[in-house]
């Protein structure tokens, strides 16, 4: 993986803006399009996210996770805040709702971080219903009510699946972060 760009953003490197867009433009656009009503709305949303990233760049710690994960986290929070203020929530974009989660090898090399590999490995091991709930919640952007209706499940079951699935992923990522921190400490010694 190339050197992270957020530390350069935090140092106000004037070329970092373009590098950020070159590397993560597609990710930001994909997330924004999922929430936005139309392309113009998505462009405004991306602008909001970029400004937020600029102010939060110094909080990124490469020892605890991939840069793309951090950027997605900031983007998602920003978009939720943005659309929460609106009276009507836009309908999520129609996305591929295939049941299977692709193997990590299917992901483009540039996007295949350790986090991505670990998440997809865990996702593929989750029970089908739990995997489907998480996919609909985080990738497609459906609310838990919408997922319950779509899958014919009780709302409580949907919430339980989502939370338990996320707990499993969090544990897997924590093992990666611990291993990374250990390697970093050995490198410093």
């Amino acid at each position: 993986m190339p050197d992270p760009v957020l530390p350069r953003i935090a140092r106000s490197d004037p070329r970092a803006t373009q590098d950020l867009l070159d590397r993560y433009g597609s990710l930001l656009w994909s997330i924004a399009r999922r929430f936005a009503t139309d392309p113009a709305d998505a462009e405004d949303a991306v602008q909001d996210i970029l400004l937020d990233l600029w102010t939060k760049a110094d909080r990124f710690d490469p020892s605890v996770g991939a840069e793309a994960s951090f950027i997605t986290m900031v983007a998602r929070r920003k978009l939720i805040d943005r659309y929460r203020r609106r009276a009507a929530r836009p309908q999520p974009q129609a996305l591929d709702e295939a049941l299977d989660v692709p193997a990590p090898e299917a992901v483009a090399t540039a996007d295949r971080t350790e986090d991505v590999t670990r998440v997809l490995d865990v996702m593929r091991e989750l029970p089908g219903e739990r995997r489907r709930v998480l996919d609909l919640a985080l990738r497609v952007g459906l609310t838990h009510d919408e997922i319950a209706s779509k899958l014919g499940l009780a709302l409580g079951t949907v919430k339980s699946h989502a939370r338990r699935g996320l707990m499993q992923i969090r544990e897997a990522l924590a093992r990666v972060a611990t291993a990374g921190a250990t390697v970093a400490r050995k490198g410093d010694a």
Binding site: L27, A66, T72, A98, A106, L120, M123, D135, R139
Partner: peptide, 11 residues
């Protein structure tokens, strides 16, 4: 964040 990124990137 990691899960959202992974699921989007996988497709």
């Amino acid at each position: 964040g990691a899960t959202t990124h992974a699921l989007l990137a996988a497709r």
